[in-house]
Amino acid sequence: MASIDLNADLGETVDGVPTADDAAMFAMISSASIACGGHAGDAASMADAVRRATARGVAVGAHPSFVDRAGFGRVALAVAPALLSEQIRDQIAALVRAGADLRYVKPHGALYHAVSVDPQIAIAVADAVADASEDLGRPLPLLGMPGAITEVAATRGIPFLVEAFLDRAYLPAGGLVPRSEPGALLHDPGVVAARAVTLVRDGRVEAVDGSTVAVTAASLCLHGDTAGSVAMAREVRAALDAAGIIVRAPW
């Protein structure tokens, strides 16, 4: 039977206020990418997210970002590679201190896109993940979109798994429509659920111009802070179950 990982970006509290209904989302996913202080989250929210994940049997991943709480990590910052690597290491370590049995790392926001196109940023992030892997005594896979980070991770012995997005619109070339543009986010649970099944069964997703983008993904992402995320997650799980697709973490 086919299987797929379903992940969500969670633990994204700002000033102690969660940006998503984490309790509901944890019930429907197999992996959770937890904010670890760069763009959101703090020691308390990380510990709470780890407890929820453990109770639900959900795999925990670190979700580090540029250190940019004001911009929620969605603004690309000019940071020296050595400093950026240190910041990523610190964020991963903070989640481990919160009790996480860490299974993977997924960059957030602007950093997520930067590692795909900027080799120097990709190297900085890969170096941080390699260091964290050494500390843990096992390789920590990286989750993201193919690009510069793919080859850099391979040179450091870091497994790289491809992710596809259920609630984001795709460009014909395979990238995501910028959040600043109309239609960047999808909100129709039925459309999102159908996309999930098509991605798993056919390895493709429809771009905004109607063309087809080939995506062989190990994990599907629903953003916890997208409006209607809980309804979408419920419909996605129902559609995957109906199609006989098992939802489980690959880590």
Rank of each mutant, 00 (worst) to 15 (best):
S3M: 15
D5H: 06
L10A: 03
L10M: 04
D15T: 13
V17Q: 15
D22Q: 07
M25E: 05
S30C: 05
S31F: 02
S31V: 06
S33N: 15
I34H: 09
A43I: 12
A44F: 14
S45C: 09
M46G: 02
A49C: 11
A49L: 03
T54V: 14
G57W: 07
V60C: 09
A62V: 09
A62F: 06
H63G: 02
H63I: 01
P64L: 01
S65H: 08
F66K: 04
F66D: 06
F72T: 07
G73R: 07
G73Y: 03
V75P: 07
V75C: 11
V75A: 13
A78N: 15
V79M: 01
P81F: 09
A82E: 14
L84E: 00
L84H: 04
Q87L: 11
D90H: 14
Q91W: 09
I92F: 04
V96D: 05
R97Y: 12
A100G: 02
L102M: 02
L102H: 00
L102P: 00
P107C: 08
G109R: 05
G109K: 02
V115N: 03
V117M: 12
V117E: 13
D118M: 08
I121E: 04
A122N: 07
A126V: 11
A126R: 02
D127R: 13
D131V: 15
D131W: 15
S133L: 08
P141V: 10
P141C: 10
P141E: 07
L142K: 05
M145I: 14
M145Q: 13
P146F: 03
A148T: 12
A153E: 00
A153I: 00
T155I: 08
R156N: 07
A164L: 04
F165G: 00
A173K: 13
L176M: 03
V177P: 02
S180M: 11
S180Q: 13
E181P: 09
P182W: 06
G183A: 10
A184R: 05
L185V: 15
L186P: 01
L186V: 10
H187F: 13
G190H: 08
G190R: 06
V192R: 03
A194V: 10
V200D: 01
G203F: 06
V205R: 01
E206I: 12
A207R: 00
A207C: 02
A207N: 02
V208A: 11
S211Y: 04
T212Q: 13
A214P: 09
A217V: 08
C221S: 06
A227C: 12
S229Q: 04
A231E: 14
A231D: 15
A231V: 13
R234G: 06
R237V: 12
L240S: 08
D241C: 06
A243H: 02
I246Y: 11
V247K: 08
